[in-house]
Design a binder for these strands. Structure first.
Length: 580
RNA sequence: GCGCCCGUAGCUCAGGGGAUAGAGUGUUGGCCUCCGAAGCCAAAGGUCGCGCGUUCGAUUCGCGCCGGGCGCGCCA
């Protein structure tokens, strides 16, 4: 709706521009949404940009443009303001129409097929099975899933992939750690590995291993398989509790098994971008912007971690994913150059056509968890870090997801558990959910109190969802300031999706929802919805239904539930000592 | 030292070449006979880290400082 109006207005300005300055390109024309209502619905600053080249004052240019502006059914009036802005005010009907658009589109409102079904892979979490997921993984899970949803909303076919490293020596470390605990339990001499894993879960796994039949503490292979399976299962449970699903799990070991790693090394050598020194094989990553060259194959014959990573990304490309977004912690940002360098070396030699910026990365900063005014650094289960499960248990899934996605990825995030808990009243996610519940409640009351009166006019096919019945309501009565503000926000929702998707920044959606909820609460407190004036009542209900739809769609995108009822504590004014 | 990122209200953070820089929280003061007070309204709170440049216009872009985070392994 808003996009429709925008392109219509751009067309009007383009025609005016062609008349007064034919040599100027129409691409100069931009339309802004003014922050202040008094500046109209759209604002065009082009006159100020043209002033210099036309050698006239900005206001003179604006005057000429205004005179040449064609009339339109949607435009109430256009006027010059400030230093030379042309502000456009729309007719009420143009703004009200969005309600109908939303109710007709329902859960599809905000979706588009702009991406035309392009295949995209979003790889995220990708935690090694050496311990429980930590809060950083939680941020990745919330971000990655929301980014995937954003892409889907824009018409991409998204594959969510989890890559896990089951071949490195940290797995060996895990196995040795568990073995050491197992031997302790059996009363045998044991030597705990120097950089082993110290969390309580290691002991638990050791105990489970020993209890699971006639197990041999010397069978390191069996221990490794058992431990990895246990931790993978635990991670899956955590992700399920978090509401995040993956389409595919990709094993690092498979890259060795199917020969991809060897082929990648061969390709890199063939590319001429490698050299040998000190008994090791190096990749000339400096040819691709790195500050030093990197070892690919160590003198002991094993590969450094980024070699399988390059092989993995060649595989992604060959699997048909020509757009890939990797969500990782920014502490991995040094891998970006190396992986891209390896891909370029291979692609150039073999003509694969992999673009220089492939793959995309969204790198997020650290999460610190605050509790009781101090940083929480340990958890019982994992030892040296706070787990995702800790957060979910403390503040719930909805709050955790909303919180973790509500900041720009590249800012450090302080997760204040006390605030998130004590909240219930201040937590933004509850505030948004509350707006949703309030609207549901009003719609329900409308159904029970006015079904006969309004229902006779608007037959309800789905009694539990009055939205259907409101599709044909006359929206003319929506003329209040707060109503226009809501109409604007509702109409801008698709733009918000588009922008958030473009920038790969789901926090924009969180803020959009927060703002819409705020506008609604304000409206709700100022105006009565279920009033006796039937036409106005119906129009307001339709607006509320549209707002609810947007809230529901946005929350769904973020993986947060949109309840029709919120848990309610004791009645108001029932504080201790004030009762009868 | 080098590379990437961040400095915006007391605190946690949005925004971003455009008009008077915004929310939440905290502080202060008002709102329930009535659709959910888990809410609303109002007040107060700012040299947008500092400086120079780019231009009609810089909080936004560029460069240089200052402060903070992360990375800089034949670890992953």
């Amino acid at each position: 709706m808003s996009a429709e109006i925008r392109s219509h207005l751009t067309g009007l300005f383009a025609r005016a521009l062609a008349q007064i300055a034919p040599q100027q390109p129409a691409s100069l024309i931009t339309l802004e949404r003014p922050k202040q209502a008094q500046h109209g619905d759209f604002s065009c600053p082009v006159a100020m940009q043209l002033a210099k080249s036309l050698k006239r004052s900005p206001r003179e240019v604006a005057q000429a443009l205004l005179a040449a502006l064609p009339a339109s059914d949607w435009v109430e009036r256009a006027e010059i303001a400030g230093p030379g802005f042309i502000n456009v005010r729309l007719r009420p009907a143009a703004k009200q129409h969005v309600v109908r658009t939303v109710l007709a589109a329902g859960e599809r409102y905000g979706r588009s097929d702009a991406a035309g079904g392009e295949r995209v892979m979003v790889e995220f979490v990708s935690a090694n099975p050496t311990g429980p997921l930590h809060v950083g993984h939680g941020r990745q899970a919330a971000l990655g899933d929301a980014i995937s949803a954003l892409l889907e909303w824009r018409g991409s076919r998204v594959t969510r992939e989890f890559y896990y490293n089951d071949a490195g020596n940290q797995i060996e470390n895990l196995a040795l750690s568990v073995q050491a605990r197992a031997r302790e339990r059996l009363g045998l001499a044991s030597e705990f590995p120097a950089d082993g894993y110290h969390g309580e879960y290691i002991g638990e796994i050791a105990a489970k291993y020993l209890a699971s039949g006639a197990r041999d503490a010397e069978d390191l292979d069996a221990i490794r398989r058992f431990a990895v399976a246990e931790l993978r299962a635990e991670q899956d449970r955590d992700l399920q509790a978090f509401g995040v699903r993956f389409d595919n799990y990709y094993l690092e070991s498979s890259l060795y098994a199917d020969g991809r790693v060897e082929r990648t090394v061969k390709s890199l050598v063939d590319s001429g971008e490698t050299f040998e020194r000190d008994g090791a094989l190096w990749l000339k990553t400096t040819d691709y912007g790195d500050d030093k060259d990197r070892v690919m194959r160590k003198s002991d014959g094993t590969y450094t971690y980024f070699v399988p990573d390059v092989a993995y990304h060649v595989a992604k490309w060959e699997r048909g994913f020509h757009r890939v977004i990797n969500v990782q912690g920014s502490d991995h940002h040094s891998t970006v150059v190396r992986v891209r360098a390896g891909l370029q070396a291979i692609s150039e030699k073999q003509g694969l056509g992999i673009p220089a910026g492939y793959p995309d990365y969204v790198l997020h900063k650290m999460v610190t968890v605050m509790k009781g005014g101090a940083e929480m650094k340990i958890s019982k289960r994992a030892g040296s870090y706070v787990t995702l499960r800790d957060l979910i248990d403390e503040v719930g899934r909805d709050a955790t997801r909303f919180f973790l996605v509500s900041r720009k990825p590249d800012t450090e995030f302080v997760f204040d558990v006390d605030l998130a808990k004590s909240q219930s009243e201040e937590n933004p996610v509850y505030y948004v959910q509350m707006a949703h519940a309030r609207i549901s409640s009003v719609l329900e009351q409308w159904r029970t109190q006015f079904a006969v009166e309004d229902g006779s006019l608007f037959p309800t096919s789905a009694p539990n969802d009055p939205s259907d019945a409101l599709n044909d309501v006359d929206l003319g009565p929506l003329t209040g300031e707060r109503e226009f503000a809501l109409l604007k926000s509702v109409g801008d929702f698709p733009d918000a999706i588009e922008a958030a998707c473009q920038d790969l920044e789901p926090h924009q959606i969180a803020f959009t929802l927060r703002e819409l909820a705020g506008q609604f609460h304000s409206y709700y407190n100022a105006e009565r919805i279920l009033i006796s004036d039937a036409p106005l009542r119906r129009a307001r209900l339709a607006l509320c239904a549209a707002v609810r739809q947007v809230l529901r769609n946005g929350l769904g995108l973020l993986g947060v539930s949109a309840p029709n009822k919120m848990m309610r504590e004791d009645a108001p004014f029932s504080a201790p000592g004030t009762g009868p």
